[in-house]
Protein backbone atom coordinates (compact mmCIF):
# COMPACT_ATOMS: atom_id res chain seq x y z
CA UNK A 1 0.00 0.00 0.00
CA UNK A 2 1.46 3.30 -1.05
CA UNK A 3 1.40 6.45 1.06
CA UNK A 4 -1.31 8.18 -1.00
CA UNK A 5 -3.53 5.17 -0.60
CA UNK A 6 -3.01 5.34 3.13
CA UNK A 7 -4.06 8.99 3.26
CA UNK A 8 -7.01 8.29 0.97
CA UNK A 9 -8.26 5.54 3.24
CA UNK A 10 -7.88 7.87 6.21
CA UNK A 11 -10.27 10.35 4.60
CA UNK A 12 -12.76 7.60 3.93
CA UNK A 13 -12.94 7.07 7.70
CA UNK A 14 -16.07 8.92 8.83
CA UNK A 15 -14.68 9.62 12.29
CA UNK A 16 -11.72 11.48 10.85
CA UNK A 17 -14.07 13.54 8.73
CA UNK A 18 -16.29 14.43 11.67
CA UNK A 19 -13.21 15.39 13.69
CA UNK A 20 -11.92 17.65 10.93
CA UNK A 21 -15.29 19.34 10.53
CA UNK A 22 -15.45 19.96 14.29
CA UNK A 23 -11.92 21.36 14.27
CA UNK A 24 -12.69 23.82 11.50
CA UNK A 25 -15.84 24.95 13.30
CA UNK A 26 -13.79 25.44 16.46
CA UNK A 27 -11.13 27.50 14.68
CA UNK A 28 -13.85 29.56 13.05
CA UNK A 29 -15.55 30.30 16.36
CA UNK A 30 -12.35 31.16 18.14
CA UNK A 31 -11.07 33.48 15.46
CA UNK A 32 -14.48 35.14 15.16
CA UNK A 33 -14.25 36.11 18.84
CA UNK A 34 -10.93 37.81 18.45
CA UNK A 35 -10.34 41.27 17.19
CA UNK A 36 -8.96 40.15 13.91
CA UNK A 37 -9.22 43.48 12.24
CA UNK A 38 -7.00 45.34 14.71
CA UNK A 39 -4.70 42.35 15.17
CA UNK A 40 -3.65 42.45 11.52
CA UNK A 41 -1.70 45.64 12.04
CA UNK A 42 -1.44 46.15 15.81
CA UNK A 43 -0.12 42.67 16.55
CA UNK A 44 2.09 43.68 19.46
CA UNK A 45 -0.58 45.81 21.08
CA UNK A 46 -3.26 43.14 20.78
CA UNK A 47 -0.87 40.55 22.22
CA UNK A 48 -0.34 42.84 25.19
CA UNK A 49 -4.07 43.31 25.46
CA UNK A 50 -4.51 39.58 25.89
CA UNK A 51 -2.81 39.88 29.31
CA UNK A 52 -5.23 42.64 30.16
CA UNK A 53 -7.87 42.01 32.82
CA UNK A 54 -10.36 43.75 30.52
CA UNK A 55 -9.75 41.14 27.83
CA UNK A 56 -10.66 38.44 30.35
CA UNK A 57 -13.84 40.33 31.18
CA UNK A 58 -14.84 40.41 27.50
CA UNK A 59 -13.88 43.92 26.48
CA UNK A 60 -12.30 44.63 23.09
CA UNK A 61 -10.36 47.40 21.39
CA UNK A 62 -13.50 49.36 20.63
CA UNK A 63 -14.42 49.50 24.32
CA UNK A 64 -11.71 52.07 24.89
CA UNK A 65 -10.85 53.33 21.43
CA UNK A 66 -14.44 53.67 20.28
CA UNK A 67 -15.62 52.97 16.75
CA UNK A 68 -17.96 50.31 15.42
CA UNK A 69 -18.71 47.45 17.75
CA UNK A 70 -18.87 44.79 15.04
CA UNK A 71 -15.18 44.82 14.33
CA UNK A 72 -14.55 41.11 14.22
CA UNK A 73 -13.80 40.75 10.56
CA UNK A 74 -10.91 42.21 8.63
CA UNK A 75 -13.42 43.24 5.95
CA UNK A 76 -14.95 45.95 8.10
CA UNK A 77 -11.81 47.46 9.48
CA UNK A 78 -12.83 50.70 7.83
CA UNK A 79 -15.97 50.83 9.88
CA UNK A 80 -13.99 50.34 13.08
CA UNK A 81 -12.47 53.74 12.68
CA UNK A 82 -15.82 55.39 12.34
CA UNK A 83 -18.28 57.02 14.68
CA UNK A 84 -16.76 57.85 18.07
CA UNK A 85 -13.39 56.31 17.23
CA UNK A 86 -10.67 58.08 19.23
CA UNK A 87 -7.54 56.27 18.10
CA UNK A 88 -4.70 57.28 20.34
CA UNK A 89 -6.14 59.44 23.13
CA UNK A 90 -4.20 62.47 24.31
CA UNK A 91 -2.89 62.28 27.88
CA UNK A 92 -5.56 64.71 29.00
CA UNK A 93 -8.26 62.43 27.63
CA UNK A 94 -7.23 59.14 29.18
CA UNK A 95 -9.27 59.80 32.31
CA UNK A 96 -12.25 60.43 30.07
CA UNK A 97 -11.99 56.87 28.73
CA UNK A 98 -11.47 55.17 32.09
CA UNK A 99 -14.16 57.22 33.83
CA UNK A 100 -16.79 55.64 31.60
CA UNK A 101 -16.68 52.69 34.01
CA UNK A 102 -14.32 53.63 36.88
CA UNK A 103 -16.27 56.62 38.12
CA UNK A 104 -15.17 56.58 41.76
CA UNK A 105 -11.49 56.10 40.93
CA UNK A 106 -11.51 58.95 38.43
CA UNK A 107 -13.24 61.23 40.92
CA UNK A 108 -10.53 60.45 43.48
CA UNK A 109 -7.79 60.90 40.93
CA UNK A 110 -9.10 64.32 39.95
CA UNK A 111 -8.37 65.59 43.46
CA UNK A 112 -4.71 64.54 43.12
CA UNK A 113 -1.66 66.67 42.48
CA UNK A 114 -1.05 64.67 39.31
CA UNK A 115 -4.32 65.75 37.74
CA UNK A 116 -3.67 69.25 39.01
CA UNK A 117 -0.41 69.32 37.06
CA UNK A 118 -2.09 68.03 33.90
CA UNK A 119 -4.71 70.75 34.21
CA UNK A 120 -1.94 73.32 34.55
CA UNK A 121 -0.50 72.23 31.23
CA UNK A 122 2.06 69.59 32.19
CA UNK A 123 0.63 66.53 30.43
CA UNK A 124 3.57 64.32 31.46
CA UNK A 125 2.16 64.17 35.00
CA UNK A 126 0.93 60.71 35.89
CA UNK A 127 -2.43 59.62 34.59
CA UNK A 128 -4.26 56.25 34.75
CA UNK A 129 -2.05 54.43 32.26
CA UNK A 130 1.27 55.45 33.85
CA UNK A 131 0.56 53.36 36.90
CA UNK A 132 -1.83 50.72 35.58
CA UNK A 133 -0.25 50.09 32.20
CA UNK A 134 -1.57 50.98 28.79
CA UNK A 135 -2.67 47.84 26.99
CA UNK A 136 -1.39 45.38 29.59
CA UNK A 137 -3.59 46.47 32.47
CA UNK A 138 -3.53 43.64 34.98
CA UNK A 139 -5.69 43.12 38.02
CA UNK A 140 -4.30 44.88 41.10
CA UNK A 141 -3.88 41.53 42.85
CA UNK A 142 -1.80 40.11 39.99
CA UNK A 143 1.83 40.08 41.22
CA UNK A 144 2.95 41.16 37.74
CA UNK A 145 0.74 44.20 37.78
CA UNK A 146 2.66 47.47 37.87
CA UNK A 147 0.09 48.77 40.34
CA UNK A 148 0.33 45.75 42.61
CA UNK A 149 1.16 46.72 46.18
CA UNK A 150 4.76 45.51 46.09
CA UNK A 151 5.48 46.95 42.61
CA UNK A 152 4.32 50.38 43.62
CA UNK A 153 7.81 51.76 44.51
CA UNK A 154 9.27 50.78 41.13
CA UNK A 155 6.24 52.09 39.29
CA UNK A 156 6.36 55.47 41.04
CA UNK A 157 10.13 55.60 40.57
CA UNK A 158 9.67 55.53 36.79
CA UNK A 159 8.92 59.23 37.05
CA UNK A 160 9.99 60.15 40.58
CA UNK A 161 13.57 58.94 40.14
CA UNK A 162 13.81 60.75 36.83
CA UNK A 163 15.93 63.76 37.70
CA UNK A 164 15.15 65.62 34.50
CA UNK A 165 11.44 65.35 35.00
CA UNK A 166 11.43 66.06 38.73
CA UNK A 167 13.74 69.04 38.63
CA UNK A 168 11.59 70.92 36.13
CA UNK A 169 10.95 74.38 37.54
CA UNK A 170 7.25 73.86 37.97
CA UNK A 171 7.78 70.71 40.08
CA UNK A 172 11.01 71.15 41.99
CA UNK A 173 10.60 67.71 43.58
CA UNK A 174 13.67 65.81 44.76
CA UNK A 175 14.42 62.75 42.66
CA UNK A 176 15.73 60.72 45.62
CA UNK A 177 12.32 59.69 46.98
CA UNK A 178 12.84 56.04 46.06
CA UNK A 179 16.46 56.07 47.26
CA UNK A 180 15.45 57.45 50.64
CA UNK A 181 12.56 55.02 50.85
CA UNK A 182 15.15 52.29 50.39
CA UNK A 183 16.64 53.31 53.74
CA UNK A 184 13.43 52.44 55.53
CA UNK A 185 12.50 49.17 57.18
CA UNK A 186 9.48 49.06 54.89
CA UNK A 187 11.55 48.71 51.74
CA UNK A 188 14.18 46.43 53.24
CA UNK A 189 11.46 44.05 54.35
CA UNK A 190 9.64 44.30 51.02
CA UNK A 191 12.87 43.68 49.12
CA UNK A 192 13.35 40.42 51.05
CA UNK A 193 9.90 39.14 50.23
CA UNK A 194 7.92 40.38 53.23
CA UNK A 195 5.06 42.19 51.55
CA UNK A 196 3.00 43.26 54.57
CA UNK A 197 4.67 46.66 54.69
CA UNK A 198 3.81 50.13 53.48
CA UNK A 199 4.78 51.09 49.94
CA UNK A 200 4.31 54.48 48.24
CA UNK A 201 0.57 54.25 47.71
CA UNK A 202 -0.15 53.22 51.30
CA UNK A 203 1.02 56.55 52.73
CA UNK A 204 0.53 58.85 49.75
CA UNK A 205 -2.78 57.30 48.63
CA UNK A 206 -3.08 55.63 45.26
CA UNK A 207 -5.57 57.92 43.51
CA UNK A 208 -5.79 60.85 45.91
CA UNK A 209 -2.05 61.57 45.85
CA UNK A 210 -1.51 65.08 47.17
CA UNK A 211 1.33 67.32 48.25
CA UNK A 212 2.28 67.03 51.94
CA UNK A 213 1.61 70.77 52.24
CA UNK A 214 -2.05 70.24 51.33
CA UNK A 215 -4.09 70.01 54.55
CA UNK A 216 -6.29 67.32 53.01
CA UNK A 217 -3.28 65.18 52.10
CA UNK A 218 -2.72 61.88 53.89
CA UNK A 219 0.90 62.97 54.43
CA UNK A 220 0.07 66.37 55.89
CA UNK A 221 1.57 66.23 59.40
CA UNK A 222 -1.80 66.56 61.10
CA UNK A 223 -3.06 63.55 59.18
CA UNK A 224 -0.02 61.31 59.57
CA UNK A 225 -1.23 59.53 62.73
CA UNK A 226 -4.38 58.52 60.85
CA UNK A 227 -2.32 57.40 57.87
CA UNK A 228 0.06 55.27 59.96
CA UNK A 229 -2.88 53.93 61.93
CA UNK A 230 -4.70 52.61 58.87
CA UNK A 231 -6.45 49.29 59.03
CA UNK A 232 -3.94 46.40 58.74
CA UNK A 233 -1.02 48.78 59.30
CA UNK A 234 -0.22 50.22 62.74
CA UNK A 235 -3.78 50.00 63.97
CA UNK A 236 -4.65 51.87 67.11
CA UNK A 237 -1.56 54.07 67.14
CA UNK A 238 -1.84 57.06 69.37
CA UNK A 239 0.55 59.97 69.28
CA UNK A 240 0.54 63.70 69.06
CA UNK A 241 0.20 64.77 65.45
CA UNK A 242 3.03 67.27 65.88
CA UNK A 243 5.37 64.46 66.78
CA UNK A 244 5.01 62.81 63.41
CA UNK A 245 5.82 65.91 61.38
CA UNK A 246 9.07 64.47 60.21
CA UNK A 247 10.93 64.25 56.99
CA UNK A 248 10.33 60.56 56.59
CA UNK A 249 12.27 60.41 53.35
CA UNK A 250 15.31 62.40 54.43
CA UNK A 251 17.99 60.34 56.08
CA UNK A 252 21.20 62.32 55.99
CA UNK A 253 19.62 65.70 55.54
CA UNK A 254 18.25 66.02 59.08
CA UNK A 255 20.38 69.07 59.67
CA UNK A 256 19.55 70.83 56.45
CA UNK A 257 15.85 70.34 56.97
CA UNK A 258 15.32 74.05 57.52
CA UNK A 259 16.01 74.95 53.90
CA UNK A 260 13.42 72.55 52.66
CA UNK A 261 11.03 73.48 55.40
CA UNK A 262 11.08 77.13 54.46
CA UNK A 263 9.96 76.24 50.97
CA UNK A 264 6.90 74.42 52.16
CA UNK A 265 5.30 77.36 53.96
CA UNK A 266 3.84 75.32 56.79
CA UNK A 267 2.55 76.41 60.15
CA UNK A 268 5.43 78.09 62.01
CA UNK A 269 4.51 76.41 65.34
CA UNK A 270 5.11 73.04 63.78
CA UNK A 271 8.33 74.24 62.25
CA UNK A 272 9.83 75.03 65.66
CA UNK A 273 8.72 71.78 67.15
CA UNK A 274 9.99 69.84 64.20
CA UNK A 275 13.33 71.44 63.53
CA UNK A 276 14.64 71.45 67.09
CA UNK A 277 14.86 67.70 67.57
CA UNK A 278 16.04 67.08 64.03
CA UNK A 279 18.91 69.46 64.44
CA UNK A 280 20.04 67.70 67.62
CA UNK A 281 19.39 64.30 66.12
CA UNK A 282 21.74 65.16 63.30
CA UNK A 283 24.61 65.83 65.70
CA UNK A 284 23.89 62.71 67.70
CA UNK A 285 24.01 60.68 64.49
CA UNK A 286 27.35 62.28 63.61
CA UNK A 287 28.66 61.54 67.11
CA UNK A 288 27.92 57.84 66.73
CA UNK A 289 29.55 57.66 63.33
CA UNK A 290 32.71 59.23 64.74
CA UNK A 291 32.59 57.00 67.83
CA UNK A 292 32.32 53.81 65.78
CA UNK A 293 35.11 54.76 63.45
CA UNK A 294 37.46 55.92 66.21
CA UNK A 295 36.98 53.01 68.58
CA UNK A 296 37.28 50.34 65.92
CA UNK A 297 40.19 52.09 64.23
CA UNK A 298 42.08 52.55 67.48
CA UNK A 299 41.56 49.07 68.85
CA UNK A 300 42.29 47.36 65.57
CA UNK A 301 45.57 49.26 65.68
CA UNK A 302 46.16 47.97 69.21
CA UNK A 303 45.52 44.40 68.11
CA UNK A 304 48.02 44.77 65.28
CA UNK A 305 50.60 46.29 67.67
CA UNK A 306 49.95 43.48 70.15
CA UNK A 307 50.50 40.93 67.43
CA UNK A 308 53.72 42.58 66.27
CA UNK A 309 55.04 42.83 69.82
CA UNK A 310 54.45 39.13 70.28
CA UNK A 311 56.52 38.44 67.18
CA UNK A 312 59.34 40.27 68.96
CA UNK A 313 59.83 42.61 66.07
CA UNK A 314 59.03 45.74 67.97
CA UNK A 315 62.65 46.82 67.75
CA UNK A 316 62.11 47.72 64.14
CA UNK A 317 60.14 50.80 65.17
Amino acid sequence: MSLSNKIYSLFKNKYTLILMVLLSIFIGVVSAQEDVSCYHCHTKVVNEFRNNIHYDKGFNCASCHGGAEKSNSSLISNTVMSGDFVGRPTRNNITGICSKCHVKETEDYKTSIHWDAIQKGHPEAATCTDCHGIHEIRAIKDPNSSSNHHNSPVTCAKCHSNNEMMSAWYYGIKADRFDTYKESFHWRALDRGYTLVATCADCHENHKTKSHTDPTSSTYPENIPKTCGKENCHEGVNFDAKVAGGLVHDKESLHTAELKWNKTGMDSNMKDYFLGPFDLAYWIAIFFKILTTTVIGFFTGMVILDFLSRLKIQRRF
Partner: peptide, 13 residues
Protein backbone atom coordinates in the same frame (compact mmCIF):
# COMPACT_ATOMS: atom_id res chain seq x y z
CA UNK B 1 4.26 54.49 68.19
CA UNK B 2 4.26 54.01 71.93
CA UNK B 3 7.61 55.80 71.97
CA UNK B 4 6.16 58.65 69.93
CA UNK B 5 3.72 59.38 72.72
CA UNK B 6 6.78 60.58 74.63
CA UNK B 7 9.46 61.56 72.13
CA UNK B 8 9.28 63.21 68.69
CA UNK B 9 9.55 61.23 65.50
CA UNK B 10 13.03 62.62 64.95
CA UNK B 11 14.33 60.47 67.79
CA UNK B 12 12.61 57.36 66.53
CA UNK B 13 14.34 58.00 63.24
Amino acid sequence: FQAMEVIPYAYVH
